[in-house]
Design a protein around this nucleic acid. Structure first.
Length: 486
RNA sequence: CGGAAUGUGGCGCAGUCUGGUAGCGCGUUCGCCUGGGGGGCGAAAGGUCGUGGGUUCGAGUCCCGCCAUUCCGACCA
């Protein structure tokens, strides 16, 4: 009587992808929704992923010349209103601070904003910081010698979203936002392209997620940008996830915030500014890219725990000895900079295993009396599962651990690429697009850009909930990607 | 903000139609046996039934408001 092995996550991806996504977050203990509408509480295991993202990416920015700093979380409403397109884009989703004091509410005994403490000018909780950083840059940049100015801050922003999902879209989310200023268009454009390359490197080499770099169509541009460049990844359900963007803001913000510099010959010119970001949304991307029906599958380089060592203890007599044996191996792994840990919790072994599986720890190591006697370990790769179970000597394992993790990363990246390629479909007409999505197929459509001129396109896009993702560099602007998106 | 659904111990649900002292599974705690992909037996703890009103002798159950979550749409990283 062979029963189909129970999956750790119900429902499965195939049964109900959005619900599966929620359940993975819960099972892996990444985050939960909070008492604050639309906001999430990121739990330690989830936050550890974000910390790793910061720790890895931040030095890359520093190496490029970017300096970190911090601007206020509150922005004067008057700042936001200066750039016309920018206001239009963000005004409708701003949380507004109007008072600076609470007082006892005579009506119900609770607290209320004190009417006497109303601010003359309200603030918005920053939805993004172009304006307040533009204001600073106008004072900080005087001469061509001050350029380029490359600033970044790690922080959170707030956008009052109508519909939220943990990591993918929450009212408050964490990100880094870079804001650079250059003397001319070439500088700004080069900046956008360079940082997009850094993002690509980060997504492929660290997160094992490949996608498409490209230029956004006009209607998908950032409010206030002349050009938006984006990295678009394909999730397992075929929907697109905009993973990161860089914006060429031209002189739009320089004009409104008076960001000018004196040229070598004494003239006065407007700066060309850029802004660029990725966010905690990428944690959602990791889940939807790599997760399976048993939960999270962490790419090794971002995994908070890369190797989990499970002592398999049968009786109290050998417990201490086995644990010690495990700890000694962990020490050797840690000496190589590997994030390894022995699970010494007072739980049943199978429960520990499932916990490691649901959390997506890349490599699980089981060590019981048998292994200890023989000087061996049993390893299991999370991305492959029980079929990858193998027993090797401790020495070999310690020696190969790093390359085993690299192999996991490489395989995950190849799978990501293969999936993307297999689900990117060429289409030459609006009808083909309609047919594709009418048949419930998933993936990206790659169509000639001329299709954007076709008057029938809008209706089909609307019918299937599609949007243009970008015009990918690989086709040098001759095609456009069309897909459903997060 | 429109359409739909849901809110009952930590989690998943039944109970609501037909009002009458709040139940089940998992998890948790304790004990014993166990321990290499979710084990067994026994005991125990744990709930203002989302919230505020109303109807009633009596409300988880009926009526109204509000809030939250999820899904679909519009909007968006």
């Amino acid at each position: 009587m062979s029963k189909k092995p129970r999956t750790a996550i119900t429902p499965t991806r195939e049964e109900n992808f959005p619900e599966w996504y929620q359940q993975v977050i819960k099972a892996a203990d990444l985050a939960e929704s909070s008492p604050v509408r639309g906001c999430m509480t990121v739990k330690p295991y989830g936050w550890a992923i974000w910390e790793n993202m910061q720790n890895i990416f931040d030095p890359w920015l520093k190496d490029y010349g970017v300096q970190n700093c911090s601007f206020p979380v509150l922005i004067p409403v008057s700042f936001l209103s200066k750039e016309a397109e920018h206001v239009e884009g963000f005004a409708k989703e701003c949380a507004v601070v109007t008072h600076h004091r609470l007082e006892k509410d005579p009506e119900n005994g609770g607290l209320r904003p004190a009417p006497s403490a109303e601010l003359e000018e309200p603030y918005v909780v920053r939805p993004t910081s172009e304006t307040i950083i533009g204001d600073a840059m106008s004072r900080w940049i005087q001469s061509y010698r001050d350029l380029p100015m490359q600033l970044n801050q790690w922080g959170s922003v707030m956008r009052w979203e109508m519909r939220t999902r943990i990591f993918l879209r929450t009212s408050e989310f964490f990100w880094h936002e870079g804001h650079n200023a250059y003397a001319d268009h070439e500088g700004a454009k080069g900046d956008c392209l360079h940082i997009l390359d850094l993002y690509e490197k980060f997504f492929t080499e660290i997160l094992a997620i490949d996608g498409y770099k490209g230029i956004k169509t006009a209607d998908e541009r950032f409010p206030g940008a002349n050009e938006t460049y984006a990295f678009e990844a394909m999730m397992q359900d075929g929907k697109a996830l905009q993973a990161a963007t860089t914006h060429d803001l031209g002189t739009n913000f320089s004009k409104t915030f008076d960001i000018k510099y004196q040229t070598k010959d004494g003239g006065e010119e407007l700066c060309h500014t850029t802004s660029w970001a990725f966010s905690t949304r990428m944690i959602g991307g990791l889940i939807m890219m790599h997760g399976d029906d048993d939960g999270m599958v962490m790419p090794p380089r971002i995994a908070p725990q890369q190797i989990m060592i499970l002592p398999v203890i049968k009786d109290d007599a050998t417990a201490a000895e086995i644990t010690e044996f495990c700890e000694a191996i962990a020490v050797q792994l840690k000496a190589q900079g590997i994030r390894a840990k022995v699970d010494t919790r007072d739980m049943r072994t199978p429960d520990k295993m499932w916990d490691a599986i649901k959390k997506g720890i890349p490599l699980r190591v089981e060590i019981g009396g048998r292994e200890m006697e023989a000087g061996e370990v049993t390893t299991v790769r999370r991305d492959i599962g029980r079929d990858s179970k193998q027993t090797i000597s401790v020495d070999q394992f310690v020696n190969d651990a790093e390359s085993m993790l690299d192999a996991i990363h490489d395989d995950m990246l190849v799978r990501s690429r293969t999936f993307r390629d297999e689900n990117t479909v060429l289409a030459g007409s609006v009808m083909e697009i309609d047919d594709f999505f009418s048949e419930d197929k998933i993936g990206f459509i790659r169509a000639p850009v001329e299709i954007l001129e076709d008057e029938a396109l809008a209706a089909v896009m609307k019918k299937h909930g599609l949007s243009t993702r970008n015009m990918p560099f690989i086709d040098e602007g001759s095609t456009v990607l069309i897909a459903k998106a997060y």
